[in-house]
């Protein structure tokens, strides 16, 4: 339990770099729908990767750090958006949904042991990156936009093909990364940290 409470220096660096990675994935430029009310970006890809590689609470922490810096006014969201205004938009739920999204992705991957299978990674990315994010995003979209839940769900369905493609891409990238760098598997990283402590 101890290792989950204390944020070791290794984790500070990993969390910071992944928060920066999510920000950097917004740089190539966002494809906007509804005048950027809900932009399609690669940033959700970064959110899924943060969960799949850092594990549940470290992944969620990376998202929290990014959102805190956005709230403070840094233009780290896709298309250089930032500031408190990003949280007043009707799409705010799709941002806040990143927190449980990364956490759920990480939770499922963590249960896959030292070499999570492709299917497990895919399920994790779908459940976290789409399921959890939509679960927060759609109701908030309905409340802030003043429309019914059904209408909000219908409009969100428009983004589903893109999000499915991103979940598959996140799975392929997470799998490739974990093969090239075994320490990118949460369970392997925890073991190494534990071993390091015994030295």
């Amino acid at each position: 339990m101890h290792q989950f409470r204390v944020l070791r220096t290794y984790d500070v660096a990993r969390v910071a770099v992944f928060a920066a990675l999510i920000a950097a994935l917004g740089l190539p430029g966002a494809l906007n729908v509804f005048g950027s009310a809900v932009p399609i970006t690669l940033q959700t890809l970064g959110v899924m990767l943060a969960g799949a590689i850092l594990g549940s609470w470290r992944g969620a922490l990376a998202v929290a750090v990014l959102l805190a810096l956005v709230a403070v006014g840094l233009p780290l969201l896709a298309g250089g958006r930032g500031g408190l205004g990003a949280f007043a938009l009707p799409s705010v739920g799709f941002l806040l949904g990143w927190l449980p999204g990364a956490a759920l992705t990480g939770w499922i991957v963590e249960r896959g042991g030292h070499s999570p299978s492709f299917v497990r990674l895919l399920v994790a990315c779908l459940a976290g990156g789409i399921g959890a994010v939509y679960l927060v995003g759609v109701p908030m979209w309905a409340v802030v936009g003043g429309i019914t839940l059904g209408q909000a769900a219908l409009q969100t369905a428009f983004f589903l093909p893109g999000d499915l493609a991103k979940a598959v891409l996140a799975t392929i990238v997470a799998r490739g990364t974990q093969r090239a760098y075994p320490d990118a598997v949460p369970a392997v990283h925890y073991d190494r940290l534990r071993a390091g402590k015994e030295d």
Partner: peptide, 14 residues
């Protein structure tokens, strides 16, 4: 990109 970012993070942590 992700492998490079992780390498950078772990070097930074070290």
């Amino acid at each position: 990109l992700v492998v490079g970012a992780l390498r950078h993070a772990d070097a930074l942590g070290e």
